[in-house]
Design a protein around this nucleic acid. Structure first.
Lengths: 141, 141
DNA sequence: CTAGATGCAAAGAATTTGCGGCCCC
DNA sequence: GGGGCCGCAAATTCTTTGCATCTAG
């Protein structure tokens, strides 16, 4: 009944309304990285009257509470996923749009080191890879 | 007289008009990463009649010819810089907006390796760091 | 009753596009 | 004199907001 994200909202003391619960549930159940329109469509399957404005407002609320993360894959639309303790990044298949998550400690360390060497303290960062699936028989090393 | 970017355009056989020359020159002379409005303002200082639509069209032309690169620092506006052989990334000072370019071979290698391990061929990628300047007396390691 | 949440439609912001006019080969 | 380019303004797309209404405490 209570989605994971709704649980996090309650713990953070956010006032939960029916609509916010729906958005929380949609994002909890998502295994992809839906954009606002997709969240709205899925939300309407639960509550057909929910408006896009409320979806935007709910997403902003969840983002500001650090419960979800806003992603940007460079196509002009915001996408969302549940915030994760374990920091990860995305590889986007430019042919299918499929998004593969990955994490890599070496990169995390490198980023911190680079910022440090430039005399900066790292606050945020963003890494996306764009690629195409390799054929089973590799054509290049 | 002839800016570096204009030279590249000529080599690629692009038809150059007065307006395109102005945009090319603005970008050649830029040491920052201007957005479209900034390019337009600078262009108007050379040719007060150039329109924003032409700036957009010229930037697209240059981008499609791989002469300039479109950047996205997550604030909803596109920024541009001259394309560079030497691949580099950006560290954005979130207090001042200043952008510091850096490059790092280890990261380049890691990215290729990660994509390869996921059975992908890397086509593009994007890395931005967001940070704040450290005080002279470090408060954290 | 009051504060805050929602829906709707209008407003914004960044970017693209339709179109008449102009320029150049 | 025809194709391409330009400027202008309208159109698009994504997102935010003003406002009247509704709702829960």
């Amino acid at each position: 009944m209570t989605s994971h994200i709704e649980q996090l909202c309650i713990e953070k003391g956010l006032k939960m309304t029916d609509q916010r619960r729906v958005v929380a549930r949609v994002l909890s159940e998502a295994t992809d990285h839906p954009d606002v329109e997709q969240v709205h469509i899925r939300a309407m399957q639960i509550d057909p009257n929910i408006s896009i404005a409320t979806v935007y407002r709910s997403l902003r609320l969840l983002e500001e509470a650090s419960i979800i993360e806003r992603l940007d894959f460079g196509d002009g639309r915001a996408r969302f996923e549940e915030a994760c303790e374990r920091h990860h990044h995305h590889l986007i298949d430019i042919q299918t749009g499929e998004v593969i998550e990955f994490m890599n400690d070496e990169i995390e360390e490198l980023k911190k080191k680079i910022a440090h060497d430039l005399n900066y303290r790292l606050i945020g960062h963003r890494l996306e890879l764009y690629g195409i699936k390799r054929r089973p028989e590799p054509e290049e090393s």
